[in-house]
């Protein structure tokens, strides 16, 4: 059924074609050409590639000024970079070469910042610089004169907005030893700052990001530092209630150990011979954790105090 309709359609729409064939080959028997195959296939048009210049890198002299070939930041271009670079991964064989290699174009490059170019740019900038302040030659001197270190980041990239929300974050760093604190104040300060204090480097780090502007965050950080300082120096009434269980370290002077040796000897601990070494070893045992060494030291101190043979 379907073939009949197709046949019908062909006869309807292509009557002139069949007629012309009939005119040309009137001597031969007419053939019903159902498939409409052409005797000669038509030659396809070949796509003509435009002429391309050979890569520029082929013509580069060895002693060219690279700074003017690649003056600014730009994504990788294989014809401009005269280096046989390969990048990427294939299962078998070498990594793909530089032509048509998207991997190379994705990664940021620093081809515009070669050492001679940096040198040249620095030279050019030099006339805008002021001399380095005297007395701040070394890092330790800088630290002495400027104990508070303030850090924030600027972001620069091409997007519709030039403002980055991360630029508001301010980090203030200061060494705890530079803040004048006594024993009580230091203890309270450390409890207030919590994990913002790094014990191994003695560094306090305050990061503020709650205000929308950098200036506001900076002011807030400075306020925090001031408030922490004054708050830790203040002694509240309830602080007297601190018991041994609340102590952050073992203090022999308020411990049961002191009481027991004072009752044992029936005199003040300052009058007992070798009580100071004993107290030090108990402190070490409790604060630094128990080990074979600290227990042995404790034993030696006890023997000395109780006048036992070592």
């Amino acid at each position: 059924m379907a073939t009949v309709t197709r046949l019908y359609r062909q006869q309807i729409f292509r009557p002139s074609y069949i007629l012309s064939r009939h005119l040309a080959e009137d001597t031969e028997f007419r053939v019903l050409n159902l498939k409409t195959t052409r005797s000669q296939p038509v030659q396809r048009k070949k796509l003509k590639k435009p002429d391309v210049l050979p890569p520029r890198s082929y013509q580069m002299p060895v002693d060219q000024d690279w700074g003017s070939v690649w003056p600014g930041p730009r994504s990788f271009h294989p014809a401009t970079v005269p280096l046989p670079i390969r990048q990427g991964y294939v299962d078998k064989g070498a990594p793909p070469g530089k032509y048509g290699n998207a991997e190379l174009m994705k990664i940021p490059n620093f081809l515009h910042l070669t050492p001679p170019v940096i040198k040249r740019q620095c030279e050019a900038l030099k006339r805008f610089c002021t001399p380095w302040p005297r007395g701040l030659e070394t890092d330790s001197k800088c630290e002495d004169h400027f104990p508070v270190e303030v850090a924030s980041s600027n972001y620069c990239y091409s997007s519709p907005s030039i403002r980055d929300p991360m630029a508001r974050i301010v980090t203030v760093k200061v060494k705890l030893s530079r803040i004048p604190l006594d024993e009580h104040a230091k203890d309270k300060f450390l409890r207030l700052v919590g994990d913002r204090y790094n014990e191994s480097t003695d560094m306090l780090t305050i990061v503020t990001d709650r205000c929308p502007l950098r200036k506001q965050n900076y002011d807030y950080a400075m306020y925090l530092l001031t408030a922490l300082f004054h708050e830790s120096w203040r002694v509240e009434a309830w602080e007297k209630l601190k018991s041994e269980a609340d102590m952050e370290y073992y203090d022999w002077k308020v411990s049961a150990s002191k009481k027991s040796i004072e009752t044992l000897f029936g005199k003040e601990h300052t009058d007992i011979t070798h009580a100071d070494t004993y107290s030090q070893t108990v402190d070490a045992l409790m604060n630094e954790g128990e080990s074979e060494y600290s227990v042995t030291k404790y034993g030696e101190a006890v023997r000395q105090m109780l006048q036992l043979p070592q």
Binding site: S255, A256, I261, V295
Partner: peptide
């Protein structure tokens, strides 16, 4: 966990025995 006297005695026990002579 540990065989050392301070751990085994605990806080209470250490205070009770202190000063004692530890013998390994």
């Amino acid at each position: 966990i540990s065989h050392l006297p301070r751990y085994l005695l605990g806080k209470e026990g250490f205070e009770h025995m202190d000063p004692f002579v530890p013998i390994l």
